[in-house]
């Protein structure tokens, strides 16, 4: 094949233009910004918008918006399980699929699931499982598909909340709703429900990290816990407590959304 020498060929691997920003504007420090966006206090969660039942094809679905984080989730099943080789057939399986839409993050992602998304899928499944009465669905599987449309931080935490709403909407028997809350620790500052800039901000502090907690509010059980970074034990404990509080604050909104969906479904046919 003749090679066109006149044309300037682009690099083989494309890169986001954000990479070429001057270095000082690139790094936004968590500690340098005194206030959070939208006059939010450090312990405040972003206002939440949640609705159930928007995907008509699915058994249950939910949409959730917290700030700019937008998540959609649909639940299919229970249906016959695909994998019959599993030894434990007495209880159903919860198959979670977590995906970040390619355009959801500042840097474009691929359509195929990467290692990070697979890790988030397992984390999601582990958080949701204790909330669902899977023993009621022997030999069956329930599919939970989560797509993050826009990622502005705390995606996993909100995905947990959104998925549990969709499960409730699908009529899957549950012990409790599962609520998720994330936190970013930076030295002594505790930022609840961080946005993407806060979540990803570089920090060389000795005591910094990210925590995600999933909570069953009525049973007061923690169904999911994930933390990374470097934290002292006491600040980790405090962070978990703060996250539990944050979860409780989500509860009324989620409850209302589920109630609304139930009322809509159970509405009597209009009389003529």
């Amino acid at each position: 094949m003749p090679v066109d020498n006149k044309r300037v060929r682009g690099p083989e691997i494309s890169q986001s233009p954000l990479l070429f920003l001057p270095p000082d504007s690139q790094i936004s420090k968590v500690s340098s910004s005194s206030g959070r966006q939208g006059a939010r206090g450090n312990g405040d969660i972003r206002p939440l918008f949640a609705r159930c039942g928007l995907v008509s094809q699915a058994k249950g679905s939910a949409y959730l918006e917290a700030g700019n984080t937008k998540i959609i989730c649909s639940v299919y099943g229970p249906r016959e399980t695909e994998r019959k080789d599993e030894t434990d057939m007495k209880s159903g399986r919860l198959v979670c699929d977590f995906r970040l839409a390619p355009f959801s993050c500042p840097k474009r992602g691929a359509w195929i699931q990467n290692a990070e998304e697979r890790d988030l899928s397992t984390a999601l499944a582990e958080s949701l499982q204790p909330g669902a009465c899977l023993h009621r669905y022997p030999r069956a599987q329930v599919d939970v598909n989560v797509v993050v449309l826009e990622n502005d931080g705390s995606a996993l935490a909100h995905a947990v909340t959104c998925a549990s709403m969709a499960l409730a909407d699908a009529g899957i028997e549950m012990y409790d709703t599962v609520l998720g809350c994330a936190l970013r620790q930076d030295e002594e500052r505790c930022l609840v429900d961080p946005d993407l800039a806060e979540e990803r901000a570089e920090s060389s502090a000795e005591n910094q990290g990210r925590v995600v907690v999933a909570l069953l509010p009525n049973l007061n059980q923690i169904s999911g816990l994930q933390a990374d970074g470097e934290m002292r034990e006491d600040s980790l404990t405090a962070a978990v407590r703060t996250c539990v509080e944050g979860c409780h604050r989500l509860y009324p909104v989620v409850q209302q959304a589920i109630l609304r969906a139930v009322k809509k479904k159970a509405a009597p046919p209009p009389e003529k």
């Binding site: 984390a123 582990e126 499982q129 204790p130 909330g131 000795e206 005591n207 990290g209 925590v211 069953l216 049973l219 007061n220 059980q221 923690i222 169904s223 999911g224 816990l225 994930q226 933390a227 990374d228 970074g229 470097e230 934290m231 002292r232 034990e233 980790l236 404990t237 978990v240 407590r241 539990v244």
Partner: peptide
């Protein structure tokens, strides 16, 4: 004694106090 990673594994849930 710095904690760099925590993760709950398995299909069950845990009491906050037992986590601490």
């Amino acid at each position: 004694g710095t904690v760099t990673c925590v993760r709950k594994l398995g299909g069950g849930s845990l009491d906050p106090d037992s986590i601490f």
